[in-house]
Nucleic acid binder design. Structure first.
Lengths: 340, 340
DNA sequence: TTGTACGCGTTATCAT
DNA sequence: ATGATAACGCGTACAA
């Protein structure tokens, strides 16, 4: 039967129209809403079910000139993506907000040179109407592509020297670090050190700055132990370094809760009790903070909100509302527990 | 100047052709490869740069009938997405493989009823040529949509009663659990308990089955403490239950490393030394395993490979190769460390 | 209320 | 080697 339509081909509006005995225009109207008579509607809906019609979005996007999707791009090295709980929470927060506005969030991971190029193409190809970029650094090639493309975007994080005109949402790392260090000092600690990670990133460097501001002239550079990763085991190593540089240390600000948890191990090994002998505070308010004994005093990061606000900023640009390009810093309450 | 083309409109092949003084066909040929004279090529490349042309992928997809993208859908509740390091590794593994084949991986999160519906539409709309589904359960609505759609798919995990004809890749949870329990028994432990999580899922239930098989007639149901989540704090609670039910317990199989790490805390609180008084083994070989003191003996999960193989199975279907629908179980070596 | 016809931006076929 | 021209599947303005 050479004339039969091969069943491998997907049904189109044309097929539905034929099956229902109406024109394609009418079919389109029942799908997208419009004036259509009850009997026509019934016939068309039956036809749709019968032929198994599902709209082709590529074609729809082409004519509508939008995709109803927003990209979510994480520009982080491998490790961080796997270990950082904040990223997951930011994602979920953004997804919830976009979902409410009936946008599809598509998460793109860039993990290699090749990814960078392909994701750039994807972003510029009309697959998405807007994009949320997490942890961009100025030299990221994606940034240039985006700037040239003039697609609504928002950054999460607070990259310095970033393309002005593109809004961002982040936290005040300097202020938060200063605040919790001051709080630690207020407990009577006098010899305070810091375990700092990722100081080549804005967020990492800013936390050191805040620490230094709090200490003022009491700040001693050698009491900052720099480690590469926000990771439990580096926390242990960092604490050992601090202990070696000043055996009488009585306070520690760790750049993340994971770091603080690791530091606790080194402290225990050294026979020091927390918070009796040394007080320690972390950063993030992640699940680590409740996993340690005692629980960690730390800075709460509103990760979910960060994502939601970023999504909101993209959505507003999509609506044509003008957003102030400055950006917004979300509050980071200090939560005080038993570790200091 | 009412006749000037508004700069807000994106440049098209048409614009490039006009600027270069050639036809659209020739422009298309320099983009996609084909015979074109050097001088024409030069003129066109200059024109592309000048007008800032970037191809519209929606249009290209429409005519080519493919998107060169593969979806990656995680059907997991909230918590797991944030805490489970396996998922991140699976993602990265799949992305690497897809990237090599020049496919864009798009990660879709389904976190609500609304997401389910929207993601289904997205998948059926021609945005992706294939899809990898992580942790599907039979009743997931997405599964039905996929089956009806006949789009190349692969499952990661080992859902029972799944749509036959759709390949999967997973691990042998029963066998792995049996193996490591036997290994634990071989160290001379006689009173062995298990902390089991998520027993409503195949993977969770299978680990209990393996545990039971290893113990044989020595198996006592009350020595399996069931907890809801694969989580540190539930490990602690589960261990306390076990300790209460049998104070002389000398061996523990925890359903995950996180659980085992939490159990360690309860053991320490009870004044029991590991591995002297009780031996404990975990599952996953996640970063938890090296974070505890002593390090955990555990079952290695080849998460990255899982993702890579899943991607490979989708790619093969895309190429038209036939894959045996059965599925593949990846090996899970036992890694023996200090905890038992 | 419904049908007709054009356009969205590309690629691909077929002449030239 | 290059230029017309016909799809791809859909939405919609306009006519009926």
């Amino acid at each position: 039967m050479p004339l039969s339509r091969p069943s491998s081909r997907r049904a189109t509006v044309h097929d539905v129209a034929a099956a229902a005995g109406v024109s394609r225009g009418t079919v389109s109207r029942v799908i997208n809403g419009g004036y259509v008579s009850p009997q026509a509607r019934a016939a068309i809906e039956a036809a749709i079910a019968q032929v198994g019609y599902v709209p082709n979005t590529a074609a729809r996007n082409l004519v509508r000139q939008r995709s109803q999707a927003v990209g979510f791009v994480v520009l982080e090295p491998h490790m961080l993506f796997l270990e950082d709980p904040n990223i997951g929470a930011i994602m979920l927060g953004a997804n919830a907000a976009l979902s409410d506005a009936d946008y599809q969030m598509v998460n793109l991971v860039v993990d290699s040179e090749r990814d960078t190029e392909r994701v750039s193409r994807y972003l510029s190809g009309g697959f998405v109407d807007g994009v949320i970029i997490v942890s961009a650094r100025t030299h990221d090639p994606i940034i240039r592509v985006l700037a040239q493309l003039a697609i609504p975007a928002t950054y999460v994080g607070h990259p310095r020297d970033i393309d002005p005109g593109i809004p961002f949402v982040g936290i005040d790392n300097v202020g938060s670090a200063r605040l919790i260090t001051e709080r630690l000092m207020a407990t009577g600690r006098r010899r305070i050190g810091m375990i700092a990670a990722a100081v080549d990133r804005d967020s990492g460097a800013d936390r050191v700055t805040g620490f230094q501001q709090a200490l003022g002239r009491r700040f001693r550079p050698e009491m900052v132990a720099e480690v590469p990763l926000y990771d439990y085991s580096w926390g242990t190593k960092g604490m050992r370094v601090l202990l070696e540089r000043d055996p009488d240390i009585d306070g520690v600000f760790a750049g993340s809760d994971a770091l603080a948890a690791g530091a606790l191990e080194a402290l225990r090994d050294a026979g020091l009790a927390v918070p009796r002998d040394v007080g320690i505070v972390g950063f993030d308010d992640s699940s680590w903070a409740l996993r340690t004994q005692p629980h960690l005093s730390t800075v709460h990061q509103p990760a979910t909100d960060l994502g939601a606000r970023a999504a909101d900023l993209v959505l507003r640009q999509l609506r044509g509302d003008d957003v102030d390009a400055g950006g917004v810093l979300l509050p980071t309450p200090v939560v005080w527990r038993g570790s200091a």
